[in-house]
């Protein structure tokens, strides 16, 4: 499927988003693979399917090697991917109420680190943290940090938790928070570093020089309003 642009007017302002619909989007970074700690920062929202999303939906955010074989949950090969995966079996929908838009709790255990080489996928959990929540109607922040560390890489997720609220994150919010190490903001939080218990072999499988976002459903769609790459080290 194709990832397409979508123009909306939100709170009186234009917003063009990249809309994932059973698709995988990637792009080479200017810094190549020359980084030690990197953040893939998104401002996003989801459309409202009107029901729970069942059957272990796959939403991944991270880095991949090159752009010809990004993360692909199907039969195709992935050259090399590392990032965050929302590992809930069901994204539980809460209907709109009291001015708060409908929203999905992706999992009660947050994202886990995910790697994929070829058709082989592995993940690692780590310390439990809170529900990750994606909103319809309003936009929220969703950041994934990746730390290359000696014997085991780690992943740190920053996202909206609970309770849900009606706050719509602005572009200014996005830029302000994207460069902070950790933050607490409008029911968003920075969770715990999660060790992947795994050291990607970039020399053998490809150096991580591209960002990659994938979503394996066409309903709901995921609308990415902004994407930034932030290098911390």
């Amino acid at each position: 499927m194709a990832t397409k642009t979508l123009h909306r007017i939100i709170n009186g302002q234009n917003d063009v988003a990249a809309v994932l619909s059973n698709s995988s989007l990637c792009r080479l970074m200017s810094i190549g693979s020359n980084w030690q700690r990197l953040r893939v920062a998104l401002r996003l929202r989801v459309t409202d399917s009107g029901a729970n999303v069942q059957g272990s939906p796959v939403f991944v955010v991270g880095v991949c090697a090159g752009t010809s074989q990004p993360y692909n949950n199907g039969a195709g090969n992935t050259q090399h991917f590392f990032g965050c995966y929302e590992n809930g079996t069901t994204w539980t929908r809460t209907a709109a109420a009291g001015g708060v838009p409908a929203n999905y709790a992706t999992t009660t255990n947050g994202g886990v680190s995910l790697r994929r080489v070829g058709t082989i996928t592995g993940s690692a959990g780590g310390p439990l943290h809170y529900t990750c929540r994606l909103m319809t109607e309003t936009r929220c922040l969703y950041f994934v940090d990746i730390l290359k560390a000696g014997g085991s890489w780690s992943m740190l997720q920053h996202c909206k938790g609970h309770p849900a609220d009606a706050y719509d994150c602005t572009y200014e919010d996005f830029i302000d928070k994207a460069v902070l190490d950790t933050f607490t903001f409008q029911n968003h939080g920075s969770y715990s570093w999660r060790s992947a218990s795994y050291t990607p072999n970039e020399a053998a499988n490809g150096y991580f020089d591209a960002v990659n976002v994938s979503w394996d459903r066409s309903n709901p769609k995921i609308e990415i309003s902004d994407l930034a790459v932030v290098r911390f080290a």
Binding site: M1, A2, T3, K4, L6, S23, S24, S68, A210, D216
Partner: peptide, 26 residues
């Protein structure tokens, strides 16, 4: 309503967006 593939604005990237047209559902 434009395919993202090959779009190339923004700053700090080394290439255009690539959407291989994969259907990633298993």
């Amino acid at each position: 309503d434009e395919d993202i593939n090959d779009l190339n604005d923004g700053t700090g990237f080394a290439g255009a967006w690539v959407d291989p047209g994969l259907t990633i559902s298993s």
